[in-house]
Design a protein around this nucleic acid. Structure first.
Length: 284
DNA sequence: CAAACTCCCTGTTAGC
DNA sequence: TGCTAACAGGGAGTTT
């Protein structure tokens, strides 16, 4: 599941192949992946555009394009691509057979193609002139210098609910998904059900440190491959995610899996014991 | 604001 | 062995 590190890896992989290319045509094989605008306007604004930049914001891959529509002045457009659950972006030569799961294909001017591959069709494509249309409600970038411990603490103030749920909220902090939420909390030794407003200063501090530590390690390893993607260098090594019943890598206690906000959460009941699970008298 | 629920999808897996 | 139903998961949207 592509989260910030996987998306960042895709961007780094694609950048040099896409910058400078011109979009000649686009094939929308699964129209519902186009979230905005409609097909007609999308094609009109996209086709003929030349790619100036490829970058990441939250879990979005953003392609900056310049296009002169109908001989008018050049305009800048932003193509936002969200991989959601099963999406991936690949650049292939036109003569390489297309995969049945290639849902949207962009034809480029050097006979290569940008292919949005997505088994489950959850991926989304948005083309806008004003990037704020997409980014306005996104929380801070966890890897930016501006995301200081103070900023984090401020944002946590008065927030109710489990910390895990909050970490998943893109309007609170962007880029974190289920895998890295669990991994981050494990590293910081915080129980996923711990109420956000009850986090102690030391916990906020260690969580704030754990977030970039985990994300950067994953980026270095080009993400986690839970699925069947082939990732060189060996993928990020999960500490808790999907490891229910297996020994904690710190203390050997079996990892537990519970559901928080309709989402699975994995944690070590010993290392992350912070949220005393309703003390019950042990009978003798 | 918070939490629960629905929807979109399909490969995988548990259960029969 | 073969089939079906449940499940997973991101995030937008709706309801409570």
């Amino acid at each position: 599941m592509p989260e910030l590190p996987e998306v960042e890896s895709v961007v780094r992989r694609l950048r040099s192949k896409l910058i400078g290319r011109r979009v000649l045509a686009v094939e929308l094989r699964w129209l519902r992946m186009l979230q905005y605008p409609d097909k007609l306007l999308f094609e009109r604004q996209l086709i003929g555009g030349s790619i100036k930049d490829v970058w990441r914001r939250a879990k979005y891959i953003v392609v900056t394009l310049e296009n002169a529509l109908a001989g008018k002045a050049t305009k800048t457009f932003y193509l936002f691509l969200h991989l959601r659950m099963s999406g991936d972006l690949l650049v292939r030569e036109a003569d390489v057979a297309s995969d049945p799961y290639d849902r949207v294909v962009f034809m480029l001017d050097d006979k290569s193609q940008l292919r949005f591959n997505d088994i489950r069709k959850f991926g989304r494509i948005i083309l806008v002139e004003n990037e704020l249309y997409v980014t306005a409600d996104l929380g801070p970038e966890p890897l930016e210098k501006s995301f200081t411990e103070g900023v984090f603490r401020e944002r946590l103030k008065g927030r109710r609910g489990a910390i895990k749920t909050l970490l998943l909220k893109q309007s609170f902090l962007s880029g974190i998904g289920n895998i890295y939420a669990d991994e981050t909390l494990w590293r910081a030794r915080i129980h996923p059900l711990k109420q956000a407003e009850k986090l102690k200063d030391a916990e906020i501090s260690s969580l704030h440190k754990a977030i970039p530590a985990v994300l950067n390690e994953a980026i270095k390893r080009q993400g986690t491959n839970i699925g069947d993607d082939v990732v060189p260098l060996g993928a990020y090594r999960v500490r808790v995610y999907g490891r229910e019943g297996q020994p904690c890598r710190r203390c050997q206690t079996p990892i537990k899996r519970i559901v928080i906000g309709q989402r699975s959460a994995h944690f070590c009941p010993l290392c992350q014991a912070g949220k005393q699970p309703s003390r019950r008298r042990s009978r003798s």
